[in-house]
Design a protein around this nucleic acid. Structure first.
Lengths: 181, 181
DNA sequence: GTGCACATGTAAACTGTTACATGATTGC
DNA sequence: GCAATCATGTAACAGTTTACATGTGCAC
């Protein structure tokens, strides 16, 4: 069982999903291709940590809706409590480019920051929307430690604040050098 | 040439380093083990993007100090300007655990946040120290777009702000549930 | 005398990406 | 017509981690 497997189980605790949906919903927090997710889901079923139900569809391929089992929840709880989390891995090519920005033309630097701001802004819109939805749907229950939605709310709030911070950093950086071009 | 290769070249632009030093210095921005770095440095030399000089030491193993070549700088400039940066990859087991925190005991949750705060605080101290050093050493030259230190300064400032933001998020989250335990 | 910092390297195992494969529906 | 969305899966390849390998000096 690797970290991705626990990510999948974590998402299935809140709600049952297809592999396809899991990929989309994880994207902001853990990036994985479907070619990695589908075989892993099969393995979770094989190990008794999840089950699935086939739902036939007309005009679309059949889908498999996965549900976490009690054993899956127990495995997840054990991992959360007893395995110290591995150091975070951040791999962001944009950061490398900024690190060496002294070698680039001013317009290249500008374009890099502009593109970054636009992808951060898109993510921000999604995060704000989802947080709003959570608040409406779950109200005070959201901030209860044992709520099935509390963790997701925390993680979304964190990402929201980090993205806002990075946007303001982009603007600060752009101003720093726009005064010198 | 992969992203790690460009990361190595980026660092060598500012100063010549050994593989051992490169790993330590990259750690906050791009995580790689020495087993990945050493063979890649050899490959950079083979392709003419870097050179190295062996320095014998007494009581310690000999070291190889790598220097980027003009060709290496050109390759890096081309990559920065012409290859759109890949989407960032973030893989953080702590986030998975927080996502599913509703399944954990309160003291498990507390411990997770405390450990997170302490590693963020340690990183923060290092970032503040380095930024202070940069300001003292390079003064105004730091914020000039073509300075060899500007990019590093930007990247350190970004990480500083993100870490501060995450620490305050941790405290906010801990307060949210400490009132309910 | 035990563990850590310095310093480099290879091999095996695991994780993750790209490409191949299929097929209907909807919007531009 | 062409691309995108839905939906799953496998195979080959690239990237990353863990383990094996070596050796001195220094601090506790």
């Amino acid at each position: 069982m690797n970290a991705l497997a626990y990510m999948l189980l974590s998402m299935l605790v809140r709600k049952s999903y297809t592999g396809y949906e899991l990929q989309k919903l994880m994207e902001l927090f853990w990036q994985a291709k479907h070619s990695q997710i589908y075989p892993l889901l099969a393995k979770l079923v094989q190990e008794g940590l999840a089950t699935f139900e086939v739902v036939g569809q007309t005009g679309k391929p059949d889908k498999k809706i996965y549900t976490v089992t009690d054993q899956g929840i127990a495995a997840l709880q054990d991992w959360i409590a007893n395995q110290p989390p591995a150091a975070p891995v951040n791999r962001d090519e944009f950061i490398i480019k900024i690190y060496a920005i002294g070698l680039a033309e001013p317009q290249t630097a500008f374009r890099l920051f502009e593109d970054r701001i636009s992808s951060l802004t898109a993510a921000l819109a999604y995060l704000e929307e989802e947080i709003q939805r959570m608040k409406e749907q779950y109200a005070e229950a959201l901030t209860e430690l044992d709520s099935r939605h509390f963790g997701r709310y925390l993680v979304f709030q964190r990402q929201l604040q980090i993205n806002r911070e990075e946007i303001s950093w982009c603007r600060w950086a752009m101003e720093l050098f726009s005064r010198r071009v």
